[in-house]
Write a protein that binds this DNA or RNA. Structure first.
Lengths: 205, 205, 205, 205
DNA sequence: AATGAATGAGCCTTCATTCAT
DNA sequence: TATGAATGAAGGCTCATTCAT
């Protein structure tokens, strides 16, 4: 019983800390957040938190990676049912737009913390964090586009398009964080992206 | 002579500090850089630096704005001579590529510091900093594209294209900073962007 | 046990800091005293002191108010037993004299710090500090004088006399602090004050 | 010519500095005043001021002692004309009252600076500063009271009365500086003092 | 005589982490 | 396992005074 119970209790505590940390990092970013903030948020003791996470870096890393529930999992799941491409893609773009606008207005997500952490940390493990986030976006959009190919709605190279979209999203993320992104800009760019899906490649000669 | 000499000496010192600050901010970003770092870098005294810049924020602001000796001024200047669009644009893309690769490899530019500063500062003046940087990219590419329009090499909406390119560059900046950008990716994306310049708009219906 | 023990330990530490602060403020006044002085004096760490007092102002405020364990409480207590007025007042004057002489010689009391603090702070709370000190003197002497009235040893307006005495004491405090007060002066002034207690008011016409 | 002219020019400069210092010390007290404040006030250069006063302490000392024009010189001068005692004393008290009220309201005089300096300096020279100020008050009131003796309006020991008054004034100064002095209090205390001038000594037995 | 740039000791405060209990 | 008191390095900034010109 001991082992099992301990693990379970320990696990619950760990999750409580992660929840508190998530809230704090979302609100204050990584570099401005202090252990005190997190301690206050999740009602653990100053020393206690170190029993679960041996440094604030580790805690942040865990906070990011534990987010197993991806925001766009529903989109990826929907693909299997082979819905009309146009409808699904529009749904995806709508969700991204909501996320970006919310970011612009409330500045509340791990995005900023993620950037701050990435900028200031440079181990292999650290780099992989950002990489994973990028890949997640890329993979999702790629899956959706492949649906488009199947339905003959997309004629361009999917890999290139996915990369392009991921970069577009990253750019918009930055603008959102620095308060330089407008709703109209999102609409225009998303619409423009849609026009590219089927464009016959032109030679630039 | 007095006035001139004084201005000149003071100016030289100021520039020396800005150079030191530029190096420090480039290397450590904004949030991890300390006054001590800059003091050590440019061999001034602890108090001395405050004669020229009254806070680290002001110093950073000055470092950024002074460096607006734009990297792409030569491109913008070249436009007036009405060179072949294709040649000029390729030249521009090449310079951007060099910049990005250099960023990826040496991680040394004010880019990271700029992001960190933007994330953590929110006055009107502060926001305008990032805004200006974005506008600079947008304006440059817009000018070049307009040359393309004149030479009938560009048939898409220039404003939208410029915005798109700016976002692409922002996205690549982030990837470069976090060590996730490859040369191939740059080439592919730039090439893809070129194909869009003349693509007839398709309806996504 | 936990609560009690913690409170007690924390309390002991707090008192130790207050004792150290008392010594430092007494010796150096308020404006010349530094946190470092107090830290050195009571052997706590630089950061540790901020666990108990969140600024030097607060620490000073606490030092002063804690010390309101009044010097003249015994006098005030004695009144209730209705001792001979003359005896009690002489006792009070003697204690004041001792205090003043000690001040003159050792320059060690919170008096100077109190003045420095009062001069440089101006919130309602701050002003009340000095006010309270003044009132304490005034109230004590007033109580003693009222005993004199009851015993028909004092025929002048008690309120006016108490104010007068308080001002006399303030004046002497200053002289003591600046090393300009002699024992003889104290004796003479106290004796003179005594002669006023029963003097019939004369019209100054 | 050189010597004379230099001395004269030097003297003028010195006086300009003293005037500026006087203003600054009056406004900010001694401990909060900075060399920068004084430099700004009198438009001399940072280094230049040290040609005339070798430290801020010396400058303050000079600022205090140069005030050869005493505030109550007119009163002292008037004595020689043997005016009615009552009238002259009332005039003197009125001036003191004005000074105190002004102090209470505007906190602008060297008083606070004087106290701060006295508290924090303890050489023989420094002590003499405060001593002189005290003596000035004492001497003035003593002279006036002696006029009263001559006119048989004062029957108490003049030296003791003068000391008493000086202490009263010091007490009021402190209250004025700490914002604890009311006009009524001044009136009452001055009136009370007047009643003491002729009171027949009573034995306190 | 005059300038003002330069110095560096010193100040208060914050915070991630350690450690005795 | 859990606590929270304690640590001390580090940070940004101020200011009297010195010194090269």
């Amino acid at each position: 019983m001991g082992q099992q119970a301990n693990t379970s209790r320990s696990s619950r505590k760990k999750n409580a800390i992660l929840a508190g940390a998530h809230h704090v990092f979302s609100t204050k970013g990584f570099l401005s957040a202090t252990m005190q903030d997190i301690i206050d948020e999740c009602g653990i003791s100053r020393g206690g938190i170190y029993l679960y996470f041996k440094s604030i870096d580790n805690l942040f890393f865990a906070t990011i990676t534990q987010r197993s529930v991806r925001q766009f999992d529903d989109i990826r799941a929907a693909i299997k049912a082979n819905p009309p491409f146009k409808q699904l893609f529009n749904q995806y773009l709508f969700k991204q737009k909501q996320r970006l606008l919310n970011q612009t207005q409330h500045h509340q997500s791990l995005l900023r913390a993620m950037y701050e952490y990435s900028f200031t940390h440079d181990t292999v493990r650290d780099r992989s964090l950002k990489q994973k986030q990028l890949n997640a976006t890329r993979a999702t959009v790629k899956s959706v586009l492949e649906l488009g190919v199947k339905q003959q709605r997309v004629s361009q190279d999917v890999k290139c398009l996915a990369d392009d979209f991921m970069l577009l999203i990253e750019g918009m993320n930055i603008l959102a964080l620095t308060g330089n992104l407008t709703e109209k800009q999102i609409d225009t760019q998303f619409a423009f992206f849609l026009t590219q899906l089927t464009a016959a490649p032109k030679h630039f000669s």
